[in-house]
């Protein structure tokens, strides 16, 4: 029968400093990206329409001369802030307008220029500002809630702090990657980030539990936890990667962005759990406890 095994890593070859250095450097880089983004654009992440307010029209060109991004720009009397085509759907374009544009007017302009209006999303600026506040509240709320649960589960500062720090990286690094890959923060990606908060601590809890509460040496415990944990994370990662690819091919943008953000997050989680969290646990087990 075919089978693959999780490779065993000889952690004794690396010092805690070496192990923690890589994820911490990546985290610092991610924070730098967010800071630079903030300085350049006024927000740490590029916000989607649901948060900034505005109107987005997905239109399908019914004639050959309408099937170009320039033609789409010409079709509206309101200035178009962005046009993009959808690769998996031929002759389909997404035109974005700033807030204040009237959705019904835009629809009728598109129709009279020879386009079919496939979908329309319009959010007012006030509504968007409110969603922004709620999304931030939601992210903060669930992160704090997760941290509290972790502290209740382990009741010791260093291991719990290690889990929370690694979860923090699991959120921040994907957000920075979103900027790099040009994925906007939408309701869908907020959902993905929240899911990451829940998902990513699973493997950390597993690792910490094996090291602190099971018999056997530190390295035996780590090996066993890794075997299970890596399988878990890789399974989810594959599921999400497949979802992202398939949804992209089908042109379902919401599922694509949720899938991509989770792929970023779960990959980050592998690094954070087995380098950052592990080195902090090892420090705690061998040096921290005796202090």
């Amino acid at each position: 029968m075919p089978s693959f095994d999780v490779p065993e890593v000889d952690y004794t070859r690396y010092s805690n400093r070496q192990l923690a250095g890589v994820p911490l450097a990546v985290l610092a880089l991610a924070l730098l990206v967010l800071a630079a983004w903030y300085v350049l654009n006024g927000t740490p992440v590029s916000l989607g329409l649901e948060f900034t307010g505005g109107t987005e029209l997905t239109i399908h060109a019914t004639s050959a001369q309408a099937a170009s991004q320039d033609a789409v720009r010409q079709a509206f009397s309101t200035p178009v802030s962005a046009v993009r085509s959808i690769p998996s759907r031929p002759d389909t374009y997404v035109a974005t307008f700033g807030s204040g544009a009237d959705a019904s007017t835009l629809q009728s302009q598109a129709r009279s220029a020879g386009y079919e209006v496939v979908s329309t999303t319009s959010t007012s600026a006030t509504f968007g500002a409110q969603s922004q506040r709620f999304a931030l509240l939601g992210l903060l709320g669930s992160f704090v809630g997760m941290a509290i649960i972790v502290f209740v589960l382990f009741r010791t500062a260093v291991p719990s702090g290690a889990v929370v720090l690694s979860a923090f990286g699991d959120i921040v690094i994907p957000v920075a990657l979103m900027n790099v890959f040009g994925i906007q923060l939408s309701l869908g990606t907020v959902a993905a980030l929240l899911m990451l908060i829940g998902y990513s601590v699973d493997s950390d809890i597993l690792l910490t539990n094996h090291v602190l509460r099971r018999s056997g040496s530190f390295y035996e415990s780590v090996d066993r936890a890794m075997k299970t944990g890596v399988t878990m994370t890789v399974t989810s990662l594959v599921a999400m990667a497949v979802m992202a690819v398939v949804a992209y091919a089908f042109g379902i943008e919401l599922l694509t962005s949720i899938g991509l953000v989770l792929v970023f997050g779960l990959a980050t989680d592998l690094m954070n759990t087995y380098m950052l969290n592990l080195s902090l646990l090892r420090w705690y087990k061998f040096e921290g406890v005796s202090r």
């Binding site: 709320g141 809630g145 929240l194």
Partner: peptide, 12 residues
């Protein structure tokens, strides 16, 4: 433990 974190993370 993992379930509790997921539920807490989703409840907001």
């Amino acid at each position: 433990g993992a379930a509790a974190t997921t539920i807490v993370a989703m409840s907001p």
